[in-house]
Computed example of a mutant assay.
Amino acid sequence: MKRRIDIQKEIERLDAKADCQRIVFLTAYLEFPWDVTRALELALFRTFAVPSIATVLNKTGEFTQATQRRYDDTAIIINEILINGYDSERGQAFIQRMNGIHGHYKIKNEDFLYTLSTFIFVPIYWLDRFGWRKLLKQERLALHYFWVEVGKRMGIENIPETLEAFEAWSQEYEQAMYANSEAGVQIGNATRDLLLSFYLPKFLWRAAEPVVYALMDERLLKAMNYPLPSPATRRWVQGLLKARAKILRWLPKHKSPQLTTLWRSATHPDGYAIEDIGPNSLREKLSR
C-alpha cells in the first residue's frame, strides 16, 4: 500500500508539462504496464480504420507478410522512446530511425496527427474503463505533452495545443475519415490473429475473435468490417477486465519498472541494434 501511495504522490508533485517524461514512465511501467500495452495494441486498429493510413501500411507488406516483425519493431520504437525519453540520446536515435522509415512513404500530415492522437487517447479511454485506479490529472496532461513533443520531433504540424482540443480534433477526424477498405481489413486481420496467437493455439483463434471485437466501439467495428459482438459477449469481456481491476487494487504493486515484458522479442531473440529496426526492404538503405 505504501509503494502505491508514494508513486501517486510523486506524480502529483510533478509538473505535467515539464516532467511529462517522468510521469509517463511511471504510469506506463510501474502503475499500468499491462494495460498500457493492451491499449496501444488496440490503438493499431484505429489507424487501420483510416483508408489512407491502411493503404500506406499495407504497401510495405510488413503487416501481412511479416506481422510479428512489424509488431515487434513498432513496440520496440515506442518503448525505447517511452523508457528513455524523447530528449535522451537513445530516444532521439529511435525517433530519427522512425522518421527515416516514414520518409520513404507519402504520408499526409493529418494521418500522422491522428496516429499520434491514438497514443494519447486510447490509453486514457482504456484506463478509465479498466485501470485499477483512475488516471490522475497530471497523468492525462503528461500523456498529451509527451506525445506532442514526440510529434514535433517527427515534424508533424498543426498539433492542437491542449488535451481537450486534440481530443475534439481526433473525434472529428474519425467521424470524417473512418471507412472500410481492403487494406485495412487485411492488416487488421493479420494483427488480430497475431495478438490471439500470444494467448491461444491457432485452432481457437476463430472462436476467440469476439473477445477482440468486444473491446472495440461500433464505429471502429463497422470501419473494419467486423461483426458487432453480442451484448452478452461485451458484458462478459469487459466484466472480466473490470473484475481484474478491482482485484489489482488490493494486490501488491510492482516495486520496479516492468521493462522486459512489454514487447515480444521473437524477432530479435538476441537483442537488437537501431539499424535492425524497420521493414526488410528499407533496413539496408537506412543503415547507409
Rank of each mutant, 00 (worst) to 15 (best):
L141W: 10
A142C: 04
L143E: 04
Y145A: 14
F146C: 10
W147D: 00
W147M: 05
W147I: 00
V148P: 01
V148A: 12
V150M: 00
N158D: 14
P160E: 03
P160A: 03
E164V: 09
F166Y: 15
S170K: 07
Q171A: 11
E172Q: 14
E174Q: 15
A176C: 05
M177V: 03
N180M: 06
A183E: 13
V185G: 00
A190F: 10
D193C: 07
L194Y: 15
L194F: 15
L196F: 07
S197Y: 13
P201I: 13
A207S: 13
P210N: 01
Y213G: 00
L215T: 05
M216D: 00
D217N: 12
R219T: 10
L221I: 07
K222L: 06
K222M: 08
Y226A: 12
P227R: 07
P231F: 01
A232C: 03
R235Q: 04
W236D: 06
V237I: 15
V237N: 08
Q238T: 10
K242F: 02
A243N: 12
A243Y: 14
A243D: 10
I247T: 15
I247A: 15
L248E: 15
R249M: 12
R249H: 07
L259A: 06
L259G: 06
T261V: 09
R264P: 01
R264C: 09
H268E: 11
P269V: 12
D270F: 13
